[in-house]
C-alpha cells in the first residue's frame, strides 16, 4: 500500500528477516522476563512516603542520585509509583488529573465537557470513527460515575489498576495527544524526523500502546488535557532546559503546576509536595 510506512530495505526483500522458532522461543522468554518485572509494580501504586525513593539509592554506587533524592525529599512528601510499561507518562498524567478531579467537582464537570468536545474533534480529524468514540465513551462514562458517586475513590483506584479498563481509559489520553498534534501539525512538523508526516508520527509513536512518550508527546498531552505540569529531574542533563525541573506550559511561570512528575531515565512517577507552608521556604 502506497501509504504504508516505509520500512523496506533497498531491495524490498524479506529474506534476511526470517527468524527461526528457536530464536522466537528465546525472544519470548526474554520478553516474559521483562513483562514479569514490569508487573511486579502495580499499574498505579498506593501513595508511599518519599523516603522510599532515597532508600533505592546507595551512597557508594549512586551518590549523586541519593543526594538529589534527599534534596527532593525536603520538598516532596509522597510518591506514587507508576508501572514502567511504556505508558507511564500517559498514566501518570491520567492519575494526576483524576486525583485533582476527585477533590474538585467543578474541574470534573469541565473535564467531562472537554472530553465530549475531544470526541467530536477526533471524528472531525478523521480518526477511525467508532473505535475512537468507544474509547472516549468509556472514559466519559468513568468520569460521570465519579461525578454521580457510583465510583468511590477506592473504586477509582481499583479500576485504574485493572488492565483492561485502565488501558481503555489510557487510550483516550493517547488519542487526544495525537489529535492535538494533528490539529497543530504546522507548528510541530519541524520537530518530527524528516520523511515522516505528523500523521505518520502519531500513528507510529503516539497511538500504539506501550510506546514511550517523547518530548513532543509530553508537551501535546499536557496542552490537550489543559493542565500544568512540573517535571523534576534526577540529573540536569535530562531536562530540556538544562535545569533541575521543567514546567509545561513553560510560558506561564506565574501559575503553579498542579501535577508534578519525577523523571528517571525512561520513566515517570507522580510526586506530591509536602504541605505548602512547610515546603515553600526550602523550594527556592
Amino acid at each position: 500500500m502506497a501509504n504504508e510506512p516505509q520500512k523496506s530495505d533497498d531491495n524490498g526483500q524479506a529474506a534476511e528477516a526470517v527468524v527461526t522458532d528457536d530464536e522466537i522461543v528465546l525472544q519470548d522468554q526474554q520478553l516474559k522476563t521483562i513483562e514479569d518485572e514490569q508487573k511486579s509494580v502495580p499499574l498505579v501504586a498506593t501513595l508511599a512516603p518519599f523516603s522510599i525513593l532515597c532508600a533505592e539509592y546507595d551512597n557508594e554506587t549512586s551518590a549523586a542520585f541519593l543526594s538529589k533524592a534527599t534534596e527532593l525529599s525536603e520538598v516532596y512528601g509522597e510518591i506514587r509509583y507508576i508501572r514502567g510499561d511504556g505508558n507511564c507518562f500517559y498514566r501518570a498524567i491520567l492519575v494526576g488529573l483524576i486525583e485533582i478531579m476527585l477533590k474538585d467537582r467543578a474541574r470534573l464537570e469541565k473535564f467531562i465537557a472537554s472530553s465530549r468536545d475531544w470526541t467530536r474533534t477526533l471524528v472531525e480529524l478523521g480518526f477511525p470513527d467508532w473505535t475512537c468514540t468507544d474509547f472516549c465513551d468509556f472514559f466519559i462514562e468513568f468520569l460521570e460515575k465519579i461525578h454521580s458517586g457510583v465510583h468511590t475513590e477506592e473504586a477509582v483506584y481499583t479500576i485504574l489498576n485493572d488492565d483492561g479498563s485502565a488501558n481503555y481509559i489510557l487510550m483516550f489520553f493517547r488519542l487526544i495527544t495525537s489529535a492535538f498534534l494533528k490539529q497543530n501539525s504546522e507548528e510541530y512538523a519541524p520537530f518530527i524526523d524528516e520523511g515522516m508526516t505528523v500523521a505518520q508520527y502519531c500513528e507510529q509513536e503516539i497511538e500504539p500502546m506501550w510506546k514511550d512518550a517523547d518530548h513532543l508527546a509530553i508537551n501535546s498531552l499536557i496542552k490537550a488535557a489543559g493542565t500544568r505540569v512540573r517535571i523534576e529531574y534526577m540529573d540536569r542533563t535530562a531536562a530540556p532546559n538544562g535545569g533541575w525541573h521543567y514546567d509545561i506550559p513553560s510560558d506561564d511561570q506565574q501559575i503553579a503546576p498542579e501535577i508534578t512528575l519525577l523523571y528517571r531515565p525512561g520513566h515517570y512517577d507522580v510526586i506530591y509536595k509536602k504541605d505548602s507552608t512547610e515546603a515553600s521556604e526550602i523550594e527556592n
Binding site: M1, A2, P5, S8, G12, A14, A17
Partner: peptide
C-alpha cells in the same frame, strides 16, 4: 505475528 518483517517495497 512473530515474524520480524522487513517491510517489502510498499509500491
Amino acid at each position: 505475528s512473530k515474524t520480524r518483517w522487513w517491510f517489502h517495497d510498499d509500491s
